[in-house]
């Protein structure tokens, strides 16, 4: 018989070594996340999946579940903090949803709707982040990067290429590509790479497919992310 913990008062069973988020998902319970992806080990950077255990905040994607724990997740307090984290992600980049090809398929936008983020609250940083349109098949719009490192991890661990990496630090942290010129065209990146198809926001976009599905009929236009993310085929991509 497997052990259980309480998630918002309801029992969730888990196998030894399973994280809180994994066990919750297996039990059909959704915990918001952005940088977590079922095909990769936990990353723990976005902090959207924070839950409260015995008064402590932990990343549920990275914290192994323990017998008898009482975990708070879908509460006004935790959702309030998640909303603030979303606000932080919105103001640090340049996110203009109405003109973004990813609108309706974007996890950041979908979570903001789901968690009822009504305003950005904080001052915008308006960073200067040039677009890289050099590659024949893929456009990089760094304005929307949330540093989940899914492209970094996919290219390094699945595609075996190491196309992306982060440089600098703090608020100046940013993506670089694997070329002395700094241009994606000068790498061996391919539109078929897993890294080209994993961005949860609108940084890595395929060219010539813009608006193939009209806005209003896209994934998160049809159903909220807390339902979409729980579908068996949901791998984080739309």
């Amino acid at each position: 018989m497997s052990a259980t913990f309480l998630l918002d008062g309801q029992p969730v069973s888990f196998e030894p070594g399973q994280t809180i988020l994994e066990a919750a998902r297996a039990a059909g319970r959704y915990i918001p996340h952005l940088c977590w992806h079922p095909d990769f080990p936990p990353h723990g950077s976005c902090k959207l999946c924070i839950v409260k255990v015995a008064g402590r905040h932990v990343s549920s994607c990275a914290m192994p579940a323990k017998e008898g724990w009482e975990v708070e997740s879908d509460t006004p307090e935790m959702n309030g903090e998640r909303r603030a984290l979303l606000q932080m992600l919105f103001v640090e980049g340049n996110h203009f949803c109405p003109s973004c090809e990813k609108s309706g398929n974007c996890q950041l936008q979908a979570l903001a709707y789901d968690l009822e983020m009504m305003t950005p609250r904080f001052n915008h940083f308006f960073p200067d982040r040039p677009v890289d349109a050099s590659h024949p098949d893929v456009l990089l719009d760094f304005n929307r990067c949330i540093y989940c490192e899914l492209c970094v991890r996919a290219s390094r661990d699945k595609d075996g290429k190491g196309i992306f990496a982060l440089t600098n630090r703090g608020i100046h942290k940013h993506l670089v590509v694997n070329a002395e010129s700094g241009r994606l065209a000068d790498t061996d990146f391919s539109a078929d790479d897993m890294a080209a198809n994993i961005c949860p926001v609108g940084v890595i976009l395929h060219k010539r497919v813009g608006f193939a599905v009209p806005i209003g009929q896209r994934t998160y236009d049809e159903a909220p992310i807390h339902l979409v993310a729980m579908r068996p085929e949901a791998a984080g991509d739309d």
Binding site: S45, K47, L85, V91, E92, F122, Y147
Partner: peptide, 14 residues
């Protein structure tokens, strides 16, 4: 700030 997690990267700058 190393910039890894959202609250510290953006929060310290804010």
């Amino acid at each position: 700030s190393c910039g890894f997690c959202t609250p510290c990267r953006v929060g310290t700058a804010l």
